[in-house]
Every structure is written in C-alpha cells, then in structure tokens.
Design a binder for these strands. Structure first.
Length: 270
DNA sequence: AAGTAAACCAACCGCGATTCA
DNA sequence: GTGAATCGCGGTTGGTTTACT
C-alpha cells in the first residue's frame, strides 16, 4: 500500500555538506531538473536523504539566491509581513525574491527581534511593549523578552489575508536576481576537495571550488557591479546577451555576468 | 595570547498537509 | 475510503566565527 519507503536511514550521511556533495547535487539538478527528491540522492550519487538534498538546494545552492544581509527595505518588508502573517516564513520569503524562509527566519531571530525590542516594540505582537524596555532583566528566570508568549495577533489576521488575498505572493522564479557572489560554478569532479568543506557561504562558492582559479576570477570579483545589474531580472539579462553561450571564458566582466545568467537560464528551474 | 561569551547560520527534527496505491 | 509515503514548513540545535575580558 501507499508509496515506497522514504530513505532508509541506514548509512546515510548527516552534517555539513562537502564541496564534492554540493557539486554532485548541483550538476545533477542542472542536467535533470528537480524531479522527485527521493530519487535525487540515488541518481546523483549522494549518501543523503532526499529531504537533506532538497533543503541544501533550496536554502543554499539554488542559483537565484541572494546572499548577504537583508537590506533596510527587505527588513521593513519582513516586519510588515510578519505583522500580517506571523511566523509563516515561507510566505514571507515568497515576497522577497532570492531569499529563503530559513534565511529570513534566522535574520528575524538574530537581528530584527532585537531591533524591534530596542525600539520598544514587541516583536510578537508588533505593539508597544507593555513593560519597561528590555534593558531591565529584573526577573532572573530566562530572557524576559521571550516569555510574553502570547498568540500573535498576526495569526488571526493571517486568515483574513489568506481569505482576502490582498497580499499577493509571487514566485521567486519570476524575479530572479543574481549577484556575482552568488554564482555557482560548474566544475569537474577531479578538482573538488572535500577538505574545503565548510558551512560558510564563501566555502560553497569555492565549493565547486578547487576548480576556480582566483586570478581568473579576480576581474569580476573586483569589479563594482552597477546597481542596475543587481536589479536586472534574469530574463532581461538574457535578452540583452548577444549570443547564447555558456562558455566560461570571457573577455570582460560585464559580458561574463551575462553568460553566468545564461548558464543559470539554460536550465529549467521547476 | 588565551580563555570565555555572544552572535551567527547551516542543518536537523518533527509535525501537518498532501499525494498516491 | 484508508493508510502509508512524500513534501514542505516552522522550530530547534550545534558548530563556527567574532567580540570581549
């Protein structure tokens, strides 16, 4: 009855992803697209469960991801949406192209919560704090701010949002954005070094990494990318590109950027 | 310079919803 | 219609980095 069992958890690897694993997953998904996650690790030659692959891809390897701190505008959007939707991170993320729910959730917990409290706003209810602002940890038990856990008004209002639908979500794929720091480079198996496995974003860029010559990269890394490029949609960049090539050799960085976009675009992202 | 605390973030876990045989 | 597998989401944990003493 039912479907076949998920991943037999025996012998499956856990913990941080290595550069080699990243590379395997990326190249598999680039050439095959996203199909059924359960089959992905097997077909890609990974000792991971499908769930882990999906998470790694959506939170880290997807080429349309932005990285780096959220801008002021993005933070404001997050705060506004959180007030309406509560902790529905995936819904919130759908309003911020290139950002993942995990990223937003982390940013909320580490930055925005504190900011709001400093401003005397309860991050749960989005209303002025009832008690004295957080500087006074009068009662030793636990962090004071955490414990005024009441159901967010947001949860209630969320239903009206869903019902009314006045907050229109859009798919991140509709507005793909790239930054040079976000690019995942194709590379061959022989050069990836498992040692370089680190959970840091930088490590992952270099993850495919061993293959990338820093000198080769220097021209683009040092370039100041015009703001308009940051905001240019992938389709626009593709439209602007002179030829459909996925070559990695380039003469000038701007053209290289277009080609990177093409590399991204030449596959179907489901 | 060394030790400790705080901050950050990738990844895991568990649950509910959905899909499928 | 039912039960099992899969998917997606939110909460939490734990390792790493950075700041402070």
């Amino acid at each position: 009855m039912g479907r076949q069992p998920c991943c037999d958890k025996v012998g499956l690897k856990k913990g941080p992803w290595t550069a080699e694993e990243d590379q395997k997953l990326v190249s598999f998904l680039l050439s095959n697209g996203q199909c059924c996650w359960r089959a992905v690790p097997k077909l890609a030659g990974l000792l991971r469960c499908g769930k882990s692959c999906r998470l790694r891809w959506t939170n880290y390897l997807r080429p349309d991801l932005k990285r780096g701190l959220l801008s002021e505008a993005e933070e404001k959007t997050v705060i506004d949406l959180h007030e309406q939707l509560g902790n529905r991170w995936s819904k919130i993320a759908s309003h911020l192209p290139g950002r993942t729910d995990n990223e937003i959730k982390n940013h909320w917990n580490t930055h925005i919560k504190k900011k709001l409290r400093k401003m005397g706003i309860d991050p749960v209810t989005h209303k002025p704090l009832r008690h004295a602002p957080p500087q006074a940890p009068a009662n030793g038990a636990g962090s004071p701010e955490e414990e005024v856990e009441e159901k967010p008004a947001a949860v209630a209002s969320a239903t009206t949002i869903d019902g009314g639908g006045h907050v229109e979500a859009f798919c991140t794929d509709e507005v793909p954005m790239l930054h040079i720091d976000d690019i995942i480079f194709p590379c061959d198996d022989t050069t990836a070094s498992p040692e370089s496995s680190s959970s840091s974003p930088a490590a992952s860029v270099s993850s495919c990494g061993g293959a990338i010559d820093e000198e080769w990269l220097a021209p683009i890394m040092d370039l100041e990318w015009p703001e308009s490029m940051y905001l240019m949609s992938l389709d626009d960049m593709v439209a602007a590109a002179p030829t459909a090539t996925t070559s990695w050799e380039f003469e000038d960085p701007f053209n290289a950027y277009q080609r990177i976009a093409l590399f991204d675009h030449h596959e179907t992202w489901a």
